[in-house]
Design a protein around this nucleic acid. Structure first.
Lengths: 225, 225
DNA sequence: AGTCATCTGTCAAACCGCAAACAGGATAGC
DNA sequence: GCTATCCTGTTTGCGGTTTGACAGATGACT
């Protein structure tokens, strides 16, 4: 008899999987699937069914023993758990190539993260419109964030100004930061930061590629040390 | 007495950290630092020193007991371990907003992933140049990949064509795929795939933000179920 | 009705990764 | 030379995550 949503104290690993579940379930819902078993859902995501049930177990029962899950029920519940049952106003700071690409990415709004502000210090970019949002000067950062109730700030500025931007966003009431700059950020405890590192992904991939080559070639890679 | 590079069978968690070490070490090298202790390096990355030494231990000794690490030694060793001691030719398939943003990202080339091909099915984009690379038609995918020896393919096409692109890249000899499309990819065993999910990151962040709000407000979020 | 197959919720064991502790080497200062 | 300090390489214990197993419930089929 848990509370309806005992959200916190859920393992990090489970949190990471919740979005995957929601994504796949929305897809199933879109093509008209009404019921889905833990086995079916897990296999389509390449994980074990027991793990999926274990994850769901943190939030109480989504079904009854003997009955498969109802897709609609899961979608609604997961949206609420994740917090995208209501729109989460989001702002992007730094309108370079990456910032513009993210701003243009329609998926974000569809998944519940409407873009309510784009900022850049470069005057040449200011005024340019992306998906109905004009790029604003950095001076407007705090007032706009407060007015729009921005909850998540996306940092796509150079590493040198990332900490400054982060501090200003936090001071304007933003409690979630998505950091694309290659720098650690110091923020208060109540703020969550997620560091998205492109080059880390590429290098991890490179490692595995090299590893695969070595394994294929008789595990004698270069020998030139 | 390990082999010089017992690269494979390294835990996934360690692999993920190797790029962070390299990134920070390059930074130190750039500002003229020659020696660094495990404690210093670890603290700047917000991890424990014992973990850093533990990670390095998989690859044999980078120093001797009593002596701190030499930055230059570590950089060279890590570059070789990760596989970026030689350039890793990379191609981008899908020149939409995200594809173009990645193509424009100078960091990739700097980190050892020179862009040797951009492809898109849309004729209107073909011929457009990005950082010296003209966007090519998809028909040229296989020949260019073979000619340039592409090792890593970046998939930034819609989900509907991601699997097709992946199959074609693999058939052209690519053994590492960076997938930005929201779809699982089926590939042979010798190919490594890394799934970069933007919305997953946003949702994980949303969860924590909501969690923080609830905790702050007396853990009674909405109650409207 | 009865049997069988399927499914969820739940628990316990195996597994893995992290962090602290330890042993031994190197250097600086006295 | 000796001591104190700092450092790495290595091992050990602990906590979290994953995996497999089981009990109870449901519906389909005979």
């Amino acid at each position: 008899m848990e509370r309806s949503i005992r959200s916190c104290d859920v393992p990090e690993a489970t949190i990471q999987r919740l979005p995957l579940y929601l994504e796949k379930l929305k897809l199933l819902q879109a093509i008209g699937v009404e019921d889905v078993s833990s086995r079916q859902l897990a296999e389509s995501l390449d994980i074990k069914a027991s793990q999926l049930r274990h994850d769901f177990h943190y939030f109480g029962g989504f079904s009854r023993p003997g009955r498969p899950y109802r897709v609609a029920v899961l979608v609604t519940a997961l949206e609420q758990i994740i917090g995208v049952d209501h729109p989460v106003p989001t702002a992007i700071v730094g309108a370079g190539h990456l910032g513009q690409a993210l701003a243009n990415y329609a998926g974000l709004e569809l998944q519940g993260f409407p873009l309510r502000g784009i900022f850049d210090a470069n005057p040449k970019l200011q005024g340019l419109e992306i998906r109905g949002q004009a790029i604003r000067d950095l001076d407007e950062l705090e007032p706009v964030c407060r007015r729009e109730g921005i909850k998540i700030g996306v940092i796509t500025v150079p590493a040198s100004s990332a900490q400054d931007v982060a501090t200003r966003l936090v001071s304007a009431g933003v409690t979630g930061l998505m950091n694309f700059a290659p720098t650690e950020l110091k923020v208060p405890d109540h703020v969550s930061v997620r560091h998205e590192r492109l080059t880390v992904g590429f290098m991890a991939l490179s490692f595995k590629v090299k590893c695969g080559e070595a394994r294929l070639a008789g595990e004698e890679p270069d020998a030139a040390v």
